[in-house]
Write a protein that binds this DNA or RNA. Structure first.
Length: 155
DNA sequence: GCCAACGTTGGC
DNA sequence: GCCAACGTTGGC
Protein backbone atom coordinates (compact mmCIF):
# COMPACT_ATOMS: atom_id res chain seq x y z
CA UNK A 1 0.00 0.00 0.00
CA UNK A 2 1.21 3.40 -0.92
CA UNK A 3 1.47 6.10 1.70
CA UNK A 4 1.46 9.81 0.93
CA UNK A 5 2.75 13.18 1.96
CA UNK A 6 0.61 16.31 1.81
CA UNK A 7 2.30 19.69 1.97
CA UNK A 8 0.54 22.78 3.18
CA UNK A 9 1.46 26.18 4.47
CA UNK A 10 0.11 26.46 8.01
CA UNK A 11 -0.64 30.15 7.46
CA UNK A 12 -3.04 29.09 4.72
CA UNK A 13 -4.29 25.72 5.93
CA UNK A 14 -2.58 23.95 8.81
CA UNK A 15 -3.27 20.79 10.73
CA UNK A 16 -5.34 22.68 13.29
CA UNK A 17 -7.54 23.96 10.50
CA UNK A 18 -8.15 20.39 9.42
CA UNK A 19 -8.86 19.40 13.01
CA UNK A 20 -11.48 22.16 13.19
CA UNK A 21 -13.45 20.92 10.18
CA UNK A 22 -16.66 18.94 10.63
CA UNK A 23 -15.63 15.31 10.92
CA UNK A 24 -12.03 16.57 10.89
CA UNK A 25 -12.30 16.06 7.14
CA UNK A 26 -11.75 18.45 4.26
CA UNK A 27 -11.06 18.41 0.57
CA UNK A 28 -7.48 18.89 -0.60
CA UNK A 29 -8.12 21.51 -3.26
CA UNK A 30 -5.91 23.82 -5.24
CA UNK A 31 -3.36 21.34 -6.58
CA UNK A 32 -2.35 22.73 -9.97
CA UNK A 33 0.49 20.45 -10.90
CA UNK A 34 -0.05 17.58 -13.31
CA UNK A 35 2.18 15.08 -11.59
CA UNK A 36 0.55 15.70 -8.24
CA UNK A 37 -2.87 15.58 -9.84
CA UNK A 38 -2.11 12.25 -11.46
CA UNK A 39 -1.18 10.79 -8.09
CA UNK A 40 -4.52 11.88 -6.70
CA UNK A 41 -6.48 10.80 -9.74
CA UNK A 42 -4.83 7.47 -10.45
CA UNK A 43 -3.19 6.12 -7.37
CA UNK A 44 -4.73 7.38 -4.15
CA UNK A 45 -7.10 4.89 -2.60
CA UNK A 46 -9.58 5.39 0.16
CA UNK A 47 -8.13 4.37 3.51
CA UNK A 48 -4.52 5.05 2.58
CA UNK A 49 -2.52 7.13 5.01
CA UNK A 50 -0.53 10.29 4.52
CA UNK A 51 1.77 12.60 6.43
CA UNK A 52 0.63 16.19 6.90
CA UNK A 53 3.62 18.46 6.35
CA UNK A 54 3.91 22.14 7.18
CA UNK A 55 5.94 24.04 4.61
CA UNK A 56 7.08 27.64 4.28
CA UNK A 57 7.00 28.21 8.00
CA UNK A 58 9.40 28.76 10.86
CA UNK A 59 9.87 25.07 11.62
CA UNK A 60 8.95 23.03 8.54
CA UNK A 61 8.10 19.45 9.35
CA UNK A 62 5.63 16.61 9.62
CA UNK A 63 2.91 17.36 12.13
CA UNK A 64 0.21 14.76 11.67
CA UNK A 65 -1.32 11.77 9.96
CA UNK A 66 -4.30 11.85 7.64
CA UNK A 67 -6.33 9.24 5.84
CA UNK A 68 -7.81 9.40 2.35
CA UNK A 69 -11.52 9.70 3.03
CA UNK A 70 -12.67 10.11 -0.56
CA UNK A 71 -10.91 9.26 -3.79
CA UNK A 72 -10.30 11.72 -6.61
CA UNK A 73 -13.12 13.92 -7.86
CA UNK A 74 -13.25 17.26 -9.70
CA UNK A 75 -11.71 20.25 -7.93
CA UNK A 76 -14.55 22.76 -8.08
CA UNK A 77 -12.31 25.66 -7.01
CA UNK A 78 -10.90 25.64 -10.55
CA UNK A 79 -14.33 26.79 -11.84
CA UNK A 80 -14.67 29.75 -9.48
CA UNK A 81 -13.29 33.05 -10.85
CA UNK A 82 -13.17 34.37 -7.30
CA UNK A 83 -10.96 31.53 -6.12
CA UNK A 84 -7.20 32.07 -6.02
CA UNK A 85 -6.77 28.73 -7.77
CA UNK A 86 -9.24 29.56 -10.55
CA UNK A 87 -8.25 28.01 -13.87
CA UNK A 88 -10.35 29.14 -16.85
CA UNK A 89 -8.96 26.24 -18.84
CA UNK A 90 -10.64 23.69 -16.59
CA UNK A 91 -13.99 22.89 -18.19
CA UNK A 92 -16.68 21.66 -15.77
CA UNK A 93 -17.66 19.10 -18.40
CA UNK A 94 -14.09 17.89 -18.58
CA UNK A 95 -12.38 18.94 -15.34
CA UNK A 96 -8.66 19.37 -15.50
CA UNK A 97 -8.00 19.34 -11.76
CA UNK A 98 -8.75 16.72 -9.15
CA UNK A 99 -8.93 16.70 -5.39
CA UNK A 100 -9.40 14.11 -2.67
CA UNK A 101 -10.85 14.33 0.82
CA UNK A 102 -8.55 13.80 3.76
CA UNK A 103 -9.51 13.05 7.34
CA UNK A 104 -7.31 13.70 10.33
CA UNK A 105 -6.16 10.49 11.98
CA UNK A 106 -4.10 12.19 14.65
CA UNK A 107 -1.61 14.93 15.28
CA UNK A 108 1.89 13.74 16.03
CA UNK A 109 3.10 14.07 19.60
CA UNK A 110 5.79 16.35 18.27
CA UNK A 111 6.86 17.82 14.95
CA UNK A 112 9.29 15.69 13.00
CA UNK A 113 11.28 18.55 11.58
CA UNK A 114 12.75 18.91 8.15
CA UNK A 115 16.07 19.61 9.85
CA UNK A 116 16.24 16.24 11.56
CA UNK A 117 15.07 14.46 8.43
CA UNK A 118 17.92 16.11 6.56
CA UNK A 119 20.36 15.03 9.22
CA UNK A 120 19.21 11.46 8.61
CA UNK A 121 19.20 11.79 4.84
CA UNK A 122 22.21 9.48 4.61
CA UNK A 123 20.22 6.59 6.06
CA UNK A 124 19.22 4.08 3.40
CA UNK A 125 15.60 4.26 4.54
CA UNK A 126 15.52 7.94 3.60
CA UNK A 127 17.73 7.87 0.52
CA UNK A 128 14.76 8.34 -1.80
CA UNK A 129 12.54 10.28 0.58
CA UNK A 130 11.23 13.21 -1.47
CA UNK A 131 11.42 15.81 1.28
CA UNK A 132 15.17 15.46 1.69
CA UNK A 133 15.84 15.36 -2.03
CA UNK A 134 16.75 18.60 -3.65
CA UNK A 135 14.23 20.56 -5.59
CA UNK A 136 11.14 18.50 -5.02
CA UNK A 137 8.31 20.94 -4.88
CA UNK A 138 5.34 18.68 -5.39
CA UNK A 139 2.55 19.35 -2.94
CA UNK A 140 1.43 15.74 -2.98
CA UNK A 141 3.88 12.87 -3.21
CA UNK A 142 4.09 9.16 -2.59
CA UNK A 143 5.94 7.69 0.38
CA UNK A 144 6.99 4.06 0.54
CA UNK A 145 6.02 1.87 3.46
CA UNK A 146 9.65 1.63 4.47
CA UNK A 147 9.99 5.43 4.55
CA UNK A 148 6.71 5.69 6.39
CA UNK A 149 7.75 3.30 9.14
CA UNK A 150 11.15 4.86 9.52
CA UNK A 151 9.87 8.42 9.76
CA UNK A 152 7.08 7.50 12.12
CA UNK A 153 9.63 5.73 14.28
CA UNK A 154 11.26 9.09 14.92
CA UNK A 155 8.22 10.45 16.70
C1' DG B 1 13.69 39.16 1.37
C1' DC B 2 16.85 36.32 -1.31
C1' DC B 3 17.56 32.92 -4.48
C1' DA B 4 17.87 28.06 -6.38
C1' DA B 5 14.98 24.81 -8.50
C1' DC B 6 11.90 23.82 -11.76
C1' DG B 7 7.25 23.86 -14.14
C1' DT B 8 4.76 26.42 -17.68
C1' DT B 9 4.17 29.46 -21.50
C1' DG B 10 4.66 31.11 -25.96
C1' DG B 11 7.43 32.72 -29.97
C1' DC B 12 9.76 30.80 -33.55
C1' DG C 1 9.81 20.66 -30.79
C1' DC C 2 13.21 23.89 -28.84
C1' DC C 3 14.28 27.06 -25.45
C1' DA C 4 14.25 31.73 -23.24
C1' DA C 5 11.40 34.19 -20.25
C1' DC C 6 8.64 34.13 -16.55
C1' DG C 7 6.17 32.68 -12.35
C1' DT C 8 5.95 29.90 -8.23
C1' DT C 9 7.68 27.22 -4.45
C1' DG C 10 9.84 26.95 -0.28
C1' DG C 11 14.10 26.73 2.61
C1' DC C 12 16.99 29.75 4.72
Amino acid sequence: MTCWLFKSEPDVFGIDDLAAQPGQTDHWDGVRNYQARNFMRDRMKKGELGFFYHSNTKVPGIVGIVEIAREGYPDHTAFDPEDPHYDPKSDPDNPRWIMVDVKLVRKLERTITLTELKELAGRPELAEFPLVRKGNRLSVMPVTEEQWEFVLGLE
